[in-house]
Design a protein around this nucleic acid. Sequence first.
DNA 1: GATGAATGAGACTTCATTCAT
DNA 2: TATGAATGAAGTCTCATTCAT
Lengths: 217, 217, 217, 217
Amino acid sequence: MQETTPEPQQAQPEAGLRDRKKEAKRAAIIAAAQAEFIAHGFAEARLARVAAQAGVAKGTLYLYFDSKEALFDAVLRGALPLIFAPPAAPDPGTPPQLAFRRRLRAAIADMQASERDKLALIVLSESAQFPGLARIYLEAILEPLFGLVRDYARSSGVARLEPLTRYPQLLLAPMLAATMWNRLMTERPPLDLSEMLETHLTLVLGPPEGEPAGVTG
Amino acid sequence: MQETTPEPQQAQPEAGLRDRKKEAKRAAIIAAAQAEFIAHGFAEARLARVAAQAGVAKGTLYLYFDSKEALFDAVLRGALPLIFAPPAAPDPGTPPQLAFRRRLRAAIADMQASERDKLALIVLSESAQFPGLARIYLEAILEPLFGLVRDYARSSGVARLEPLTRYPQLLLAPMLAATMWNRLMTERPPLDLSEMLETHLTLVLGPPEGEPAGVTG
Amino acid sequence: MQETTPEPQQAQPEAGLRDRKKEAKRAAIIAAAQAEFIAHGFAEARLARVAAQAGVAKGTLYLYFDSKEALFDAVLRGALPLIFAPPAAPDPGTPPQLAFRRRLRAAIADMQASERDKLALIVLSESAQFPGLARIYLEAILEPLFGLVRDYARSSGVARLEPLTRYPQLLLAPMLAATMWNRLMTERPPLDLSEMLETHLTLVLGPPEGEPAGVTG
Amino acid sequence: MQETTPEPQQAQPEAGLRDRKKEAKRAAIIAAAQAEFIAHGFAEARLARVAAQAGVAKGTLYLYFDSKEALFDAVLRGALPLIFAPPAAPDPGTPPQLAFRRRLRAAIADMQASERDKLALIVLSESAQFPGLARIYLEAILEPLFGLVRDYARSSGVARLEPLTRYPQLLLAPMLAATMWNRLMTERPPLDLSEMLETHLTLVLGPPEGEPAGVTG
DNA sequence: GATGAATGAGACTTCATTCAT
DNA sequence: TATGAATGAAGTCTCATTCAT
């Protein structure tokens, strides 16, 4: 019940006053909870810390979410809509491979800019506790990317890329690995995801076409 | 204190018997704990279940391990030695790429045969809780494999493989991704790690040399 | 403070209107609270439900009542005045036993028609929490009825009824028992209080006098 | 699971040592809980007080009972077995009415000597929360007594007692009323249940037969 | 050494009550 | 006056850890 976001009523600027504050507080709680879940995982996350971080009392959390689990769910779902943001339509004249690379770069950059890469790791951590949600989440995150890969592998007409239609994971796995690596190896200089992506794409797809050399990011 | 394995005293057959019983019980506890940690993660693991599964009383756990964390540590360390098992020396006449592929296959197969792949995921999951241990563990698992990759990339003399010396992760990431995939997507048919590895190697390294076609596993 | 009913100000029609609205809201709150207390008892009663049922906000309750306990008190006191409603004066020529029976019947019927019988049980239930109030309430309900019984037992001149002057409870206990029974045994057909009362009166006082046989209700 | 009383093993005096302590502690907890529930009702009962009264830590309660509700259940059920204690067989030559009176007296005295009369009131209080249990409990307590009344009313052959076969409550209600009365009216001298019972029986059944006058308790 | 009953700190959650709007 | 979001004290319950037997 509390999960239903109140429909925005742009026609009534007055009515929105309280609603806007509520929505702001809701967002503050989710942000605090996201940081807490990322930092400690579900089981070790403390609602007291979430409340303190969000600047509300402990009980206030329950005005917005029925339970710790519901809050966790909201944090994960809160990140979902981003993946559906329509990518900028490519220039009609762009060569297919370049268009593909650009969309992949954009997806990766977007995933890093948000915290979705860290959330994906949480999903993994908690998959034993929340199997259903994990599946939904990963599908929402990964399937669109897989679709990109499959489409390109098919339409490229390059025979040696055919296996990517069966294992689109192969092209994306390095991003996952690098994200995990950076999360774990905090003492070392972090891997440069963009450069690593370009390296991987060049290794698998060959050197970029129709693009000035060295311009990757 | 309890972590120091007692030095075997072969001169005293009686004491040896007792030690052997102790060691067996210790092994049983670790095995039970490993299963529990894999199934539920650290936070949700229950020492009561570990004790029951190991066939001992709850208090007995504390005769062998100081705390739940120490037990977790022991489980992870228990899997470490395996990675250092020296690989079988390759036949002198084997072509380098084939030898490399074979060692990679063996490492992956070994990691799957044991539960070390699942443990690696647990380490990832719990990295927020145990950052130091996680780093040590992953380095112990991954660095040797990275060394394999780097050595091959260097010695192969193939120019386009040079990036692998900087990003050896690129060659191994699909195994990680596939392991995670299989852990999460329990409802779908699991990915075939061996086939996926071969596909990836062929994609990056080119078709296998010096090996009958179709013989991969 | 809020418990003092504002003195009606008939000279000011406006103020009277406001007062009437206030009084109506107050009555609505008490009615909702009564239903809630009957349904769930004091401890499990939820002010949120009371407010919702009364059609006011939660905070509004506190404009009318200082606390949950004060509301409970108001509910009980709200039922008290009814018991003091003077019974219709009996026809002068009615035989004493018949008059007595009729008044008893009327009292029971009235208690059932209102919800006072259920409230009496609530008082009993909560007597551990509110001993003083419980005593006052039960005395207000029961003492007038006991007076009826004592008066009749004394004035009837029947020797064997003398104990009723000491234990007037004996004549009324079945009503209490039946009310409790009906509250608890919701799965069975409810006891017919009127018939049970007649049966009891006949058992103790003998068959009705001066009344056509079979006319009891 | 915790509810299953361990079967007494009289053949093994040693094994009973720990079990006896456990059983004693269990009994202490139930006793403390019974007092707490009687004093405050279910909702206002505090497990902290129960634990303190029983001389155990709060967590210990959960070694014996799964929840507060389970403890409540155990308290009520703990009183049930008493009702099934077979009454002493009457002397063969005793007149039926005297035998009936004696058994009724014994039942009432027993109910008072234990705390079952107070527990019955708790059942009433909490019937909104635990309807099923309430029914079971009251049936276990009341039905046997009703059986006594019905049997006597039938076998006595006295026509005017026939209504008691339909409404056995009529004969027992005064006991309930008196118990409630004594619970509530703590400031007044308590009603003497024995005398009140005798008075009621005499009123309904007539004066006692075959028994020296004045010997009632 | 082994047991398992006992502990108690601390977590999540509820809900009567308050107060800024 | 009326609202309803916010509060926070306090309750139930969990579980790693201890210790008497």
